[in-house]
Design a protein around this nucleic acid. Structure first.
Lengths: 340, 340
DNA sequence: ACGATTGGCACAATCGATTGTTTACACAGT
DNA sequence: ACTGTGTAAACAATCGATTGTGCCAATCGT
């Protein structure tokens, strides 16, 4: 249906290759102005649009990048995705978005899929049950940038946050308010961010002599329900914690709902600090004390790093790891610890 | 680098076409079991993955669908995107996500881009400054499903909500609480959803004899700032409205922030009803009274409708329009009107 | 036993572009 | 007149798969 190079060539009375060269406007290309005009006219008249698929096949360059995240429905990822898409648009790259739901199997399948589609680069937040897919991308020498999570024993490009410090500071803030028993609601276990945040939490617990107990470490997922259930479990303890460190957007909403259901008040009965990036944070039941991420910065750093790798002449550049600092906003969900 | 059909064929000692046929497991294909085995072994050994680009070129089928939305960072769209991506995954379609920022120019550019990429179908929320791009898609006979917005004079597939009724009911609820002066905060003007919601608002205003004034119709954008500015403007009036009908997620946060900045209380000083789909809605300063959308249903209906069109043998199926009912949740941001 | 069928696979064209190599011709230099 | 040089464009291979057709040998029918 659509016009092809051949059609344009026929109409302009030249060979397809000539049309191609003229349209790709190569430097010091010698073409008669009259020919050039005939070609442009033909392109115009036939409303010719080059076929990307054919181009990609021939040039081994698809102008496509993959973005693999756990859940594009989560504000954290959707806002990063937005940035990447935006910058991609400016550079003529389109973005294929993939959700893993934190399932390694989906991630593996997607990686294979994307590789066989010939993507020019990949930005991903790995599920981290295995490093299989990351290694596969590396083997194929497809430029890769990890976001938020890292395999510490694999040297890759990455944009990550200062998790240890952020968690430590959050707990310190609670300590300053007199809290002794702080729970840590983790998302999935063995994820880089969780390990690091736990490290910061643990460090503060040790340093400030807080109550140390495995029962204070709960949760195993990033969803609303995960947050709700873990919190409910905590609150049903005989001696529940007086403060919660939450580690995700959806976990946070779940935790808040559980607290309210119990009829407890924030922060009078229980304080809450959250790793959260929702635009709603400041307008919750109580304005939420948060550790938030500069999402635009994360997205743009990741994209630019990827682009650099894609456009580099080297087959592989030495990996770069970029550390991004979180922001700590003390609002109203953290207050003095109740006297025991 | 990666193995091709030819490599596999060479290793198995057969012709590439044979490999292709075996792998595509055509029905009643006559191939010796020994040959078949040699081929599968070769595929295994070479770790062969077919090249999607080449396939797409030859078969004129890319197993790719486009998704064009105003802003993937907005929870409304990101959660719909998630559903579409999920269902696509099950059917082996990947999704290219595009943000228009409500710019018609970006939309047009994307549509051209996606068409020249040979997408199999397109789901879009049009910017609606012009119907140019929609018509272009239609001309190319690429299956199309519109979400949320509709061109009433173009017959296309679409999944939309009962906007008129939803807005009418929301205003009626306010009327029942004694409100006489209700403001309408629209997003962009001349968008289908806005026109329809305004129609419902207007109908209620007329029917219940509410204050009718152009000064009560404000706003021209879907962002936080748009909501904030429009609300601030309203509140600075000598006689501000006692209730607000908000028409978007981000507008809502903006409006709330403006109200709080003014030192006003919700709902004592001013009531708020919002078209909002954030998971945070129930946990805001006051649990938000909302008109929300069944986002999974919208996404899945749209995807399935698209798939039906893609897989149909007919070149074009008669367009289907699916109406989805919103959900009205009365929470605590709406209360009795202040006595005047 | 001989032509007809059919099973099993190879051949070659094709999708739509890109790109290295040739060709055809004009003109300049000797 | 003949070689050399450069210009303008054509030719043809190629990317990696799919698919209509052709071919050879074994089997079948009579």
């Amino acid at each position: 249906m659509a016009a092809t190079l051949k059609d344009v060539a026929a109409r302009a009375g030249v060979h397809p290759s000539t049309v191609s060269r003229v349209l790709r406007k190569q430097e010091n290309l010698k073409i008669l102005d009259t020919t050039r005009k005939r070609i442009f006219d033909a392109v115009e008249e036939l409303n010719y649009q080059p076929d990307f698929t054919a181009r990609a096949l021939r040039m081994k360059k698809s102008f496509t990048i993959g973005l693999i995240v756990p859940d594009i429905g989560n504000p954290f990822f959707s806002r990063i995705a937005r940035t990447i898409e935006q910058l991609g648009f400016e550079k003529d790259y389109t973005v294929i978005v993939c959700n893993t739901d934190e399932h390694q199997a989906k991630e593996n399948k997607y990686v294979n899929h994307l590789l066989s589609r010939g993507i020019d680069g990949l930005i991903m937040v790995p599920a981290q049950d295995s490093d299989e897919s990351v290694n596969k991308v590396l083997e194929h020498k497809v430029p890769l940038v990890l976001i938020d999570r890292l395999f510490e024993d694999i040297n890759t490009n990455a944009v990550i946050s200062n998790n240890v410090e952020s968690a430590y500071n959050a707990v310190k803030h609670l300590v300053d308010l007199g809290h002794k028993k702080v729970a840590f609601l983790r998302g999935r276990n063995n994820i880089y961010t969780m390990t690091k945040r736990f490290e910061g939490y643990q460090k503060a617990v040790d340093e400030f002599g807080l109550v140390k107990s495995d029962s204070l470490i709960v949760g195993n997922g990033f969803s609303f329900d995960d947050g709700h259930n873990a919190t409910t479990k905590l609150l049903n303890c005989p001696e529940p914690p007086t403060a919660l460190l939450l580690t995700g957007n959806l976990i946070t909403v779940g935790a808040i709902s559980a607290i309210l259901e119990k009829g407890l008040k924030i922060p009078e009965d229980i304080s809450v600090v959250a790793f959260a990036d929702s635009i709603f944070s400041p307008y919750l039941v109580k304005p939420l004390t948060t550790i938030s991420h500069p999402l635009y910065e994360i997205g743009s750093k990741a994209f630019n790093l990827l682009l650099e790798n894609i456009e580099s002449d080297e087959e592989t550049l030495p990996p770069t790891q970029i550390m991004i600092n979180t922001q700590f906003d003390i609002r109203e969900t953290t207050g003095k610890a109740k006297a025991a």
